[in-house]
């Protein structure tokens, strides 16, 4: 299996397009970094009145909580969390960081994850379909290796490629961020709220977690692109449809969700799990458990389709 993945990896990296993708990703980070440095406000890192501000904020949160309907349970929880964190800052004299630091730059660069996702989708859409296009599928499938294994190695390669791009994004954001904005004033723990108490978390681990969580929709759409690629053997279809859905999926779903309750069964209503932590779910009655279940169901269906069709189909390319 390792050798199969190595083969796929080589095929990806022997094509110039891959380097263009990596280059664009790094360029995007670089561009934002420089723009932020040049035009960003270089104010003080902490506001002297931060204590009063936090207290004010807490007051507003409490007022908002009272007015919330029962159904916004998760949002209520997130307000409770914000209140607890504010209290923790006041108690421990931890002012919130306001100026750009290397850490916050990494945090903000997470918005490029869908950019990385775009490239992963292009790779996923091509990884099966191109073999058919090139005609190389025949020589690939007459090895003494089951088709399931070949397809699995391709899928794993796509996921590894996604993680690889995320790592590139993360590392280039880190290098650039620390070089341009420094590490801040040293109190860089992330305050997390769990089971009613606030704990200080390692910032690095927290950011990695954030990147991975933000990749859920990318992984799901990548899996869909991979499925289309394996089922229809057409990379343009897989790329086009998937990229369209990557950028339009949640917008379209939100429009439907405003009218119909069944929108909650749409994949894109469930890909953004952060809606349960700091927002209101797209459709009333959706819970974190529901979304995770839906994601799993979609994932399994995509996989069954991809593997079912790919292993059964006659290859007459």
């Amino acid at each position: 299996m390792l050798n199969l993945i190595k083969n796929e990896w080589i095929k990806i990296f022997k094509r110039p397009g891959t380097y263009v993708m990596i280059g664009l990703l790094v360029l995007a980070v670089l561009g934002t970094g420089i723009l932020t440095k040049v035009y960003g406000d270089s104010g003080q890192s902490t506001n002297p009145q931060w204590k009063q501000e936090l207290q004010q904020e807490t007051k507003e949160y409490k007022k908002e909580m009272k007015g919330l309907p029962k159904s916004a349970n998760t949002y209520k929880q997130s307000l409770e969390r914000d209140i607890a964190i504010n209290q923790y800052r006041l108690d421990h004299n931890l002012p919130p960081e306001q100026a750009e630091t290397g850490w916050s730059f990494i945090y903000d660069s997470a918005s490029f994850i869908s950019f990385a996702g775009l490239f992963t989708i292009i790779v996923a859409a091509g990884i099966v379909a191109s073999e058919f296009g090139w005609g190389t599928i025949k020589l690939l499938l007459i090895r003494p290796i089951k088709r399931t294994k070949i397809l699995l190695s391709k899928y794993l390669t796509v996921i590894i490629f996604d993680v690889f791009l995320l790592a590139i994004l993360f590392i280039s954001a880190a290098i650039l961020g620390f070089a341009l904005f420094g590490t801040g004033d040293g109190n860089n723990a992330h305050l997390a709220y769990a089971n009613g108490t606030v704990v200080e978390q390692n910032m690095l681990l927290y950011l990695i977690k954030r990147y991975l969580l933000a990749s859920i929709d990318v992984i799901m759409i990548t899996t869909m692109a991979f499925m289309i690629s394996a089922v229809f053997r057409n990379s343009s279809l897989a790329t086009g449809l998937s990229i369209f859905l990557l950028f339009m999926g949640s917008t379209v779903t939100a429009i439907i969700a405003a009218q119909y309750n069944w929108a909650k069964y749409i994949l894109f209503a469930n890909t953004d799990l952060s809606q349960y932590f700091d927002g209101i779910p797209m459709v009333d009655g959706m819970t974190l458990g529901f979304s995770i279940t839906m994601l799993l169901i979609y994932f399994i269906v995509f996989m069954l389709l991809a593997f079912g069709v790919f292993t059964k189909r006659d290859v007459a390319a």
Binding site: N3, L4, N7, K11, K14, R15, W134, T136, R143
Partner: peptide, 25 residues
């Protein structure tokens, strides 16, 4: 075997192509 034309990865060298197949067995 060869089925119809032996299509290989054009962006790889002949040797790299053979390596692909060699790794699979």
């Amino acid at each position: 075997g060869i089925v119809e034309n032996p299509e290989m990865y054009k962006f790889l060298t002949g040797y790299q192509n053979l390596m692909q197949y060699a790794r699979m067995i």
